[in-house]
Amino acid sequence: MNKLSITILFLLTITGCSYQMKNLTYGDMKSVPKDHGLVVIGVKSNTYFQEVIIAGPKTTKIDRALLKQADPYILVSLPAGNYEFSTINLNKNFYINLNFSESTVDWTFDIKPGVITYVGDFVVTSRAKYRYYSRLVNNSSAALQYLEEKHPKILEENQLVYAGTDKDYFFPYISKLKGDAK
C-alpha cells in the first residue's frame, strides 16, 4: 500500500526544541496552564530511533527519555495550536523527513485547551535496511482504556477527543453513553 519514500541525508539532526514535554499525573493538573491542552500519544516501533520532532507553536519532541515513561501511552500537555509530526531522527546522522514535497499524508493535528486530545499511535516500522513505513494509527479504544486505568480522574474531568478526523464516532458515542448513564 503506502510506502513513504524517505529522505535520508548525511546531516546532523535539527536541534533546538523549544518545549519539553513531560508525562503527567493527576497531581500535575493544577500546574497545566489554561492555554494548554492535554495530549495522549502512543509510539510503537520495531526499530530504534532517537526522537520524533513535532513542529508547532512550540516545537517539541518525543525522545527516548519520554518514551521510557510510556505505559503504553504518554499523557502530556502542549500549548493550544496546530502541530505536525515533522521528522524522525533515527540517530545523530540520519533522519526521515515526514513532510517531503510529494507526500500526501497528513501529519497535522490540533490541540485545544481544556480537552484531552488523542493524537493517535505514531508507528514506525522498518521493513528492510533504510526502508521505513510510518503512519498514525487510530487506536482510540486502547487510549481510552489507558486513561480509564491510569488516569480515571483526569478522564472524568476532561472531554476526550480524537485529533485525526471529526468523522470518527467512537469518543462521541462513549461520551453519549456516559451522559445517558448519568
Binding site: 499524508v105 497528513d106 493517535g120 503512519r135 498514525l136 487510530n138 485525526g164
Partner: peptide
C-alpha cells in the same frame, strides 16, 4: 473507522 483507521487511509 474504515476511513479513519490511519492517516494513510485519509489520503
Amino acid at each position: 473507522l474504515v476511513f479513519s483507521a490511519t492517516n494513510i487511509k485519509q489520503i
